[in-house]
Design a protein around this nucleic acid. Structure first.
Length: 424
RNA sequence: GGACAGGUGGCCGAGUGGUUGAAGGCACCGGUCUCGAAAACCGGCAUACCGGUGAACCCGGUAUCGAGAGUUCGAAUCUCUCCCUGUCCGCCA
């Protein structure tokens, strides 16, 4: 969410940002409306406060007269009239602020200057690592997994529905191995604090990171408790410090969390649905950082490197893609996607998305820090990235390391976790 | 899930419906004193928003005593709903 002051002071900057995302045509009327609502809001505040000041003075005079045993009936009548007028103006103010709030919620973050303008055709591959294995003669991961008995999609459909997976045998152990390998690396080598968050969170938490109210249909909700299953660990971890002022000495703060992630995926039927590439429940290790504004660009590079390192350790070829403004998520100011090569399906699979949200998310979740004693609190910058999402990583591992006989070599770093050097 | 007891400033803690943004204490900051420190004493010490020049300092105003709604000329104080915490009981891995 933007500061409502941008509507007063930086409307042109906002319009340029929308232009770069390619959404100015649709959102220009919204910005115009926001500007006028912002002016209305201030006028109403002045009107209300002026009358409240009168009422306060009036009440004090009533108190004085009563103590002096003087008559105050006339003043009391005056106060009643003021009260009615205040109630009316406050109602008007409330509806203006509601309207203003929904305007602000419709306006996406403005991307950073180094993000290319335009739609996804302007995305830039900024880096490539490793040599993609040729697709000739290699099988897709679902065939490998079926041969080795790693997933059981049929029974998953029976017990939960389509879009779920039961991992079995080496597949189940692979999930556990990836979780430990990722968390251990980030904790021990990259200095992240390990966090194990709840998977069910309340409405305020979902609102703090922007899943609600707009995207309520994308989340699973419980029937009776107004709790939601998290779509990513970003939600509980970013909300850890919601409504707090964090210690500046602790910054930047860095958290790593494994979680199951739950997504209804309404509207994405038929897209990458084969095998385990898009499921309603999947596992992911997530990195979250809180930084001071002047640190966030560098912190974004650092976090992205931490995610990349996981692919390098696993020996999976990948590329880093800088998303153009139009392809950058609503709340993000800059996003890198990491795409790993899956030779069996012959495609680059998105296994990580690393974003700098600047203060957009922090303002909504009200996460601040005080730069120095006596200074005003400022909003932190929040960043997060997957490192990594399991299912697509598993698909790439199986396809990249497959042997002609249907077995799969285990990369060195996973051997201690998996207890074997070949899945057979 | 049930029964009690609570939620007041960074912390502790007072508060009869009317100069209470809120006593007092602790912590913190500045000063006096001291060679220096401690002690003592003096002073300061919340946040947000609106306006005064869309800079600083400053000034005026409004709001905030868990949250929201209500009663009232006026609410930390009365009423209702909700949330949270503690203790006991129940249930449970």
């Amino acid at each position: 969410m933007h500061d409502l002051r941008v509507l007063r002071d930086q409307a042109e900057w906002l319009r340029e940002g929308l232009q770069r995302r390619g959404v100015l045509d649709t959102l220009a009327p919204t910005v115009d409306r926001g500007e006028s609502l912002e002016a209305d809001r201030r006028a109403l505040i002045q009107a209300v406060e002026e009358r409240k000041a009168q009422r306060n003075a009036n009440s004090q005079e009533v108190a004085r007269r009563k103590r002096a045993k003087e008559d105050a009936d006339e003043l009391i009548a005056e106060g009643r009239a003021l009260g009615d007028e205040i109630a009316r103006l406050e109602q008007e103010l409330a509806s203006t602020e509601d309207a203003l709030h929904s305007v602000l919620l419709e306006i996406p973050n403005v991307t950073l200057p180094d993000v290319p303008a335009g739609d996804e055709s302007n995305n830039v591959i900024v880096k490539e690592w490793g040599t993609p294995r040729p697709s000739d003669g290699v099988k897709p991961h679902w065939e490998i997994a079926s041969h080795l008995g790693l997933f059981d999609l049929e029974r998953a459909a029976k017990i939960s529905g389509s879009g779920f997976v039961v991992y079995r045998k080496g597949g189940a152990r692979l999930v556990r191995a990836l979780m430990n390998f990722f968390i251990d690396s980030h904790r021990d080598e990259h200095g992240y604090e390990e966090v194990w968050p709840p998977l069910l969170v309340n409405r305020a938490t979902m609102t703090g990171t922007g899943q609600l109210p707009k995207f309520e249909d994308d989340a699973y909700a419980t029937r009776t408790d107004d709790l939601f299953l998290i779509p990513t660990a970003e939600v509980p971890v970013t909300n850890l410090y919601r409504d707090e002022i964090v210690d500046p000495d602790a910054m930047p703060m860095a958290f790593v969390a494994y979680s199951a992630c739950f997504r209804r995926e309404a509207g994405s039927a038929g897209k990458d649905t084969r095998g385990i590439l898009r499921t309603h429940e999947f596992d992911k290790v997530e990195l979250v950082r809180y930084a001071a504004p002047e640190q966030s660009a560098e912190q974004h590079e650092l976090l992205t490197r931490h995610a990349e390192t996981m692919l390098e350790r696993l020996g999976i070829p990948y590329r880093r893609k800088l998303l153009a403004a139009g392809d950058t998520g609503f709340s993000s100011a800059k996003t890198y996607d990491l795409e790993a090569w899956a030779p069996g399906v012959g495609a680059w699979l998105e296994v990580s998305s690393c974003s700098n949200f600047t203060d957009y998310q922090a303002r909504r979740a009200n996460i601040r820090y005080r730069p120095a004693k006596g200074e005003k609190p400022r909003f932190v910058h929040t960043l997060n990235g997957s490192a990594l999402a399991f299912p697509r990583t598993i698909a790439c591992l199986l396809e990249h390391y497959q042997n002609a006989d249907g077995t799969v070599n285990v990369p060195d770093v996973l051997r201690p976790y998996l207890g074997t050097d070949v899945l057979r």
